[in-house]
Every structure is written in C-alpha cells, then in structure tokens.
Design a protein around this nucleic acid. Structure first.
Length: 447
DNA sequence: CGAAATGATTAATG
DNA sequence: CATTAATCATTTCG
C-alpha cells in the first residue's frame, strides 16, 4: 500500500508537468501559495482512494462523497485518466485490428446458400405445412423424403435466428457490402453494453475512466459478441452440413427401381447393345416409361455399360434372355418385312459370340451410311440395328458356327474389344467385310 | 449375417 | 457436358 501510494505520487508528479487542466485546478484550488501543501493534498486523496475498499460500505460511501467533493478531485482525475490512456495505448497500440474475417464471409455465404440466413420461407411452425403442401404438388415422393429434412432445417434456422438476434449488433461500418442484417434489434448485446456503460459511468466518478476507455470497452464487448456470433454461425453450418449429408445424400435413401422399370431399361440396353447410348430423347422416353428421372436413366446406363463390360460373362444369361425376348417381338412385329433372322448373313456378326463390338460397329456404320445416302429415315436404321443386336444374341445362344471366327478374329473373352468399348467401335470407317460391303448389309437387312 | 446387386456420387477425361 | 472408372451406402439374396 505504501509502495503504491508512492508510485501514484510520482506519477502525479510526472503528470503535473505541462498539464493545463491540472495547473488550472491547482491555481484555483490552493491559491498557488505553497507546493508542499499541494503535494500533501494529493497524497491525502490518493491515500483515501487506496484505502476506500477496506472500509465498511457506509463508511466508504461517505468517504466517496467526501472525495468527490474534494477540490482536487477533478484535476487529479484528469491526470490519472491521461496517464492511464498513455499506458494503455502504449501497451496495445497496433494489434487492435482483428483480421477481416474471410472465414466469416464464407460461413455467411454458406448459410445464405443453404437458406438458413436468407429470407424465411415458410417460417417456423409453418414449415411442416409448407412441406406437406409441396408434397402435394410436384414429385410427391421426392418432397415426402425431403420433408423431414426441411423440418429439421427450419428448426435449425429458427434456433439460429433467435440466437443471432441476441448477439446481433449494429456494427456501424463493418464491410459495407457484407450481407448481414444490420439494423436488427440486438437485445443481449445492447443490454449488456448499456449495463457496462452505466457501470463505468458510475465508477468513473471515483475511478479514472475516460470516455475513450468506455468506447474501447464497448468495442471489446462488441468484438466478444461478434465472436460468439461467429461461433453460432459455425456450429449452425456444421449442423446444416450434417443434416445435409444425412438426408440429401441420395445414396443413403436408395431404392431399387421396380421390376418393370428394370425390364424396360434392360430391354433397351440389350437391344442396343452395340451402341447402348440412348439419345436425350430416348432417355426421356425411358424415364417416362420407367417413372424415373432422366438422370436416373443416365445413371442406370452408365452403371450398366461399365458393369456389363467389366464382366460380360455374368450378364450372358440376362443378355440372352432379353435378346431372345425382343427378337421374338421383332420377329412377330415385322415378320414379313425383313427376314433378317436368316443366319446367312455373310459377315455374320461372327463376333456375336463374344460380343465384339468392332464388328457390330462396322455393321452399324454401313447401315448408317446407307441410310445417310438414301431416302430412308434414321428410324429404319435404328430398327435394323436393334434387330441385329438381338439377333446376334440369339445366334450366340443357339451356338453353332461361329467358333472359328471367334477364334481368329476375336480376342479378349472379357473385353468388348481391344480399344475398349463401344465408343471406338463406331469410329473406324473401314469396313471389315471387304467381300460384300454395304450392299450385302443392305440386302440382308432390308430384304 | 455376409456377399452380391444396385443406384448414386465423385474424380478424371476428352 | 457426357462418359468412364472407382467408390459409397443401401438393399436384396442366399
């Protein structure tokens, strides 16, 4: 205590030099007669301040009042404020500026994108109703699956908003373009700030507290609150991410297509085996028939192609089955038009046995070019092609005469072809059956 | 229950 | 942007 008072003393002495306010007060206070008396006064005041907390409350109040009324008080107060200001500034001058939160921006953007911080569409309790209504509208299945997700999301949003409101603060000039809501009511923060300010003001009567310091205090509070806010945003983001991965990852809610849909898809696949890449329209058609989306059709074909190619043997049975079925269909439908089922085809798609695509590709090419030249529409080409595909299977199933050809022209029992797939098959322009050429194909198929 | 089947996602590719 | 290949997560099957 003694030590401290001496310290204060010396400080006061230092501060006195060149302090207009102090000298002014001094003059009017003591009349400027003797310096020792003034020092004595200051010492007394300081002593009283230092010991004030040791006293009982009533005593302290009385002493406080007395001190407040002391003639030296304003001057001393100013000096102390100034000293404090200086020391504080020297302690932490530059490191005030916090890093301009790029992360906060990211979080905020994400929340906005996720529909959490955006405009509330169908608020709290109405969320379930909204979901229900939506389920009535488009894609009942889809929305029904998502309703749970939406309910949970709106729950998160609600919590987020109520919490945010508490910590929201009117940061006056904090990134002008920043999308946060500025003018919102800010219960907790404002409340707390006001409380602290009142407290400080109250204390400032007996304790050296300058307006600047109050300001700084407020800014500290605001920073704290904003960091809380950020934490809130962060955990909200986390929650949303978890929710997303739990509900929106379709892998978790996979349903097998119904049998009928699979039949349709397989039918198409095996009847277009040489080029199982449905056009956009074809995909739409299939999607409609199967009651699934176009992208599901795409997925299906993607999976099918890759899995077929990977292990043709496994699909042999299936292939034959569908091929036979569609072959029967084709035969019965266009029985008289084309007796293409005759195995007399010279090139015979000898490949058929192992489903080499290069041969079929050539065949396809020739048919296509033929169509291109002639008046026939593409439709015919497709028909022919699909029949050829199915026939190849029938032939292969029936077994017979293709072994030799398979042996010398065929390789890779497991591979589609050496080039690796359907894609390449259509590209080579050279016709592999030089003896006959397109003409034979024409005669074979359109006869 | 474990393995196979299967629909969806992802990274790489042209 | 469509496809392939690898992979994931689920469903179905034995």
């Amino acid at each position: 205590m003694d030590e401290q008072s001496r310290l204060m003393h010396s400080h006061a002495g230092v501060g006195m030099t060149g302090h207009p306010g102090l000298s002014q007060h001094m003059q009017e206070g003591t009349g400027g007669s003797d310096g020792d008396g003034r020092k004595q006064d200051i010492g007394d005041i300081l002593q009283q301040i230092m010991t004030i907390t040791d006293q009982s409350l009533d005593e302290a109040q009385a002493r406080k009042h007395a001190l407040n009324c002391h003639r030296m008080k304003p001057a001393l107060f100013n000096v102390l404020c100034e000293i404090k200001e200086k020391t504080v500034l020297s302690i932490r001058g530059a490191q005030e500026e916090e890093p301009p939160d790029a992360q906060l921006m990211r979080l905020d953007n994400m929340l906005l994108a996720e529909g959490v911080s955006g405009p509330e569409k169908g608020g709290g309790s109405a969320a379930a109703a909204a979901a229900a209504a939506a389920s009535g509208g488009a894609g009942a299945d889809n929305s029904a699956e998502h309703s749970d997700y939406r309910a949970k999301l709106s729950q998160i949003r609600q919590i987020y908003h109520t919490e945010l409101e508490k910590y929201e603060q009117m940061v006056s000039g904090w990134r002008g373009s920043y999308a946060g809501s500025h003018g919102k009511t800010n219960q907790a923060c404002n409340e707390f700030t006001t409380h602290v300010m009142n407290l400080l003001r109250e204390q400032s009567r007996t304790r050296p507290i300058s307006p600047k310091e109050i300001e700084r205090m407020v800014s500290i509070i605001h920073r704290k609150f904003s960091s809380i806010q950020m934490q809130l945003k962060q955990s909200t983001c986390e929650a949303v991410m978890i929710l997303r991965s739990r509900f929106l990852d379709a892998r978790r809610k996979r349903r097998n297509f119904n049998k009928q849909a699979t039949e349709i898809l397989n039918e198409y696949f095996y009847s277009h085996l040489s080029n199982p890449y449905p056009s956009e329209e074809a995909k739409e058609e299939l999607a409609k028939k199967c009651q699934i989306t176009v992208s599901q059709v795409s997925n299906w074909f993607g999976n099918k192609r890759i899995r077929y190619k990977k292990n043709i043997g496994k699909f042999q049975e299936e292939a034959n089955m569908y091929a036979a079925r569609t072959a029967v269909n084709a035969a019965s439908v266009s029985a008289q038009g084309s007796q293409a089922n005759s195995p007399s085809t010279p090139n015979s798609a000898g490949s058929a046995g192992s489903f080499n695509m290069s041969n079929s590709g050539d065949l396809f090419m020739s048919v296509q070019s033929l169509n291109g030249d002639s008046y026939q529409g593409a439709q015919v080409g497709a028909n022919v092609q699909s029949q050829v595909d199915t026939l190849r299977h029938v032939i292969s199933q029936t077994g017979g005469y293709n072994d030799g050809l398979t042996a010398n022209q065929m390789y890779s029992p497991q591979g589609i072809n050496a080039n690796g797939g359907w894609q390449d098959a259509t590209t080579p322009s050279s016709v592999t059956s030089p003896t006959e050429g397109p003409g034979s194909v024409h005669s074979d198929t359109s006869n």
